Amino acid sequence: MGDANELISFIASMSGEGSLRVEENLGEGFVRLRVSEAERRQAKHDIQHVEDIVIEMLRNARDAGATKIYLATGKEEGVRTLLFLDNGCGIPADMWERVFDARVTSKLESMKMDRWGVHGRGMALFSIRQNTRRAEVVSSAPDRGSAIIVEADTSALAERADQSTWPVAARGEDGVYACVRGPHNIVRAAGEFALEELHGCDVYIGSATEVAATLYAHASSSVDAGTLLFIDDAADLPVVDRLGSAADAGDFIRIASSIGIDVSERTAHRILAGTIKPLRSVASRLLRERDPAASKAPVPVDLERDRRGLRIASEDIERFSRAMERDFADLARRYYLSLSGEPRVRVTRDRITVSFDIGKEE
């Protein structure tokens, strides 16, 4: 026994702990696993379906102090993508990778017990990464919330076949609402969480485009225009508010990409023009309530307070851009220039800037 254990220790010291699963050979077919291997096996058990990821990520955001969580989800070629954005306390840049290690937690004194059990062991993100092809922080900072993306291969990690049917909620004898019918899919996981945290933590779920439109609508109606005067970049704003600072479609696309959302130029124009309606919260949809956040009208621009001077409607910016493109044609002919793409118009304080990407004809 002693020789065998010495050999195990020697191999471990030479090849690294990750390459050896056994800490001690106990004989008779029994072994003591290394901590890393025991954690890996526990993690594989913790997450058995895609829906488990949804619950764990929503709980994480709630425990980080989030009052709003946005879930953008889609599936392509068997890969389920889940992007979680929240207005919680955020993660420092030097912890973006470490939070996926086992037993790493910010809840030393605040473990929470809810209907899904104890939360705060530092195993949720570790378990999610162990069971998926990608799990990483896209953007986060202290007091600015987080954007975390997860990609799961559904041939390896199962999900419900029916992901389109919404559950039905009803009030029980105890007066508490719960989901009583419907497949146990991603929407139901979000619904059960939303009802558990009713009026304490709002959840919004939809496609990437729908979530982008919702983020823009919410930020446009809640971020004070004066705040935008003192920021040099959208990254200075909380994650969930950044799209509200977009000046044009190009700006919108860039900011959306920085928080994990890819949108086309056409989609960006439609969102800025208000033709894509924001999502209702999951709870308000289940309970058929009017969602105050989704229905709140944008705050009118106060020209005395908004020292940027004005906000120009997206359709007017588009017309102005087309006019500038036509006027550029004369200059292009005289100096053998070509215009690469549409002119970009940006409105800031006391200034309208038009940018042309040009090429020189040979």
Rank of each mutant, 00 (worst) to 15 (best):
A297I: 11
D174A: 11
E210I: 00
Y177K: 00
P278L: 04
A235G: 13
L58D: 03
M123A: 02
I69V: 15
F356V: 01
L85P: 01
V118D: 00
R311W: 10
A158C: 01
P183E: 07
D174H: 11
C179V: 12
T105S: 15
L157M: 08
P300E: 07
S15Y: 12
R322C: 07
D357C: 10
A246W: 06
A141Y: 03
K44S: 11
A135P: 05
E342N: 11
A256Q: 06
E173F: 12
I317N: 01
C89M: 06
H49M: 08
D202W: 06
A72M: 06
V347T: 06
S295R: 10
R144G: 00
S140N: 04
G88S: 09
R288V: 07
A12T: 15
R326V: 01
R322F: 10
K44L: 14
A190H: 03
N5V: 07
R308E: 02
A4H: 06
I69H: 03
C179F: 06
R344S: 14
A170F: 05
A169V: 00
F100W: 10
L339V: 14
K44M: 14
R188A: 05
S295A: 13
V35T: 11
F230S: 15
E362G: 11
F100Q: 08
I53Q: 02
S258C: 06
T132W: 09
S340D: 15
F252C: 06
S245K: 05
I261M: 07
S140P: 04
A234H: 10
V168E: 14
D114I: 00
P298N: 12
G117V: 05
R34D: 00
S355R: 12
V263W: 02
E77T: 04
V301F: 14
